[in-house]
Design a protein around this nucleic acid. Sequence first.
DNA 1: ATGATCTCGGATATCTATTGTCCGAGTTCT
DNA 2: AGAACTCGGACAATAGATATCCGAGATCAT
Lengths: 160, 160
Amino acid sequence: MKMSNGVEWALHSCVTLSQSREPVPAARLAELHGTAPAYTAKQLQALSRAGIVGSTMGQSGGYVLTRPASEISALEVVRAIDGDEPAYRCTEIRQRGPLGIPAERCARPCAIARAMAAAQDAWSHALAQVSIAGLAADIDADSDGTAMPDVRRWLATTRN
Amino acid sequence: MKMSNGVEWALHSCVTLSQSREPVPAARLAELHGTAPAYTAKQLQALSRAGIVGSTMGQSGGYVLTRPASEISALEVVRAIDGDEPAYRCTEIRQRGPLGIPAERCARPCAIARAMAAAQDAWSHALAQVSIAGLAADIDADSDGTAMPDVRRWLATTRN
DNA sequence: ATGATCTCGGATATCTATTGTCCGAGTTCT
DNA sequence: AGAACTCGGACAATAGATATCCGAGATCAT
Ligand code: SF4
Ligand code: SF4
């Protein structure tokens, strides 16, 4: 039960991107977050493949959110980076060993797999309720309303 | 978001152990499940360290559940094998970079970390509601009430 | 139109954590 | 007392994640 560490950077990047309608290069995001530029770029590429962010190449290019921040859930970001495969993978132990059950009677997933799937559904549901816009608002509130304006200012002043 | 694969074997082992009040060796469990004996033993050791199962050494020794199966939750088993550290680890990105926030204002975890913690709490809560006894009952129901008696019979017939 | 420059994109090494295995310490029964 | 069987932790092999690089391609200025 360990999540990929890059999810954190990706979420930070999405929150930052929600504050700018103009494209932001990956290197700029890395500088702002104090993270390794090359690896940050990798996370952005994954987000691009998932269709969460759009990319513009060439000079004055960069990444932009493809949808309003209120329409992007944290679950989508997590799945884009960490993969959408379920955490629990059934190896069909019940079919092995001396008491193996023939495959014909294993149409439905077993009780253990069902319980695990239900737990993951609860987890996914909790993350689906959280949007990038909501995260930005909460972070702003935590900083007494100065965090997001500061980000917007920084993005504007360091342009070119 | 990938769970350790050994969790599956550990849960199977716990369900099987709930059907026998006498100690069952790790090798016997591995034979029943058709899994690698050495690695199965490793999972049992982790369960023993967590206090979920008790071990008896020497001849006719093995593992036994320390509590009634109805009092053991799936969450405990998962945590024993997969570790109890949270899936999301905050690297405090907000303290890095040009807009780094001083540590004095970072007493509370940030909004992103809070959202992740809430999701994991939902996941944990779902797993805490599931007991080993409940899993055994469900597996039994799926097999028309033949699975658990078969296990008990197999454990008895192959003794010594 | 052309060149230079800046961007993303995927292919490529390195490194940690999981998986898988082994043999010795210790206990029980004969 | 002896023998056999058990668990327990220490030891390699493997897969996944981490971190990085340079080339393809587009944009802007000239
Ligand atoms: S899904 Fe159930 S029966 Fe199948 S391998 Fe996992 S625990 Fe065993
Ligand atoms: S907890 Fe929040 S502020 Fe801290 S590193 Fe994670 S995402 Fe950033």
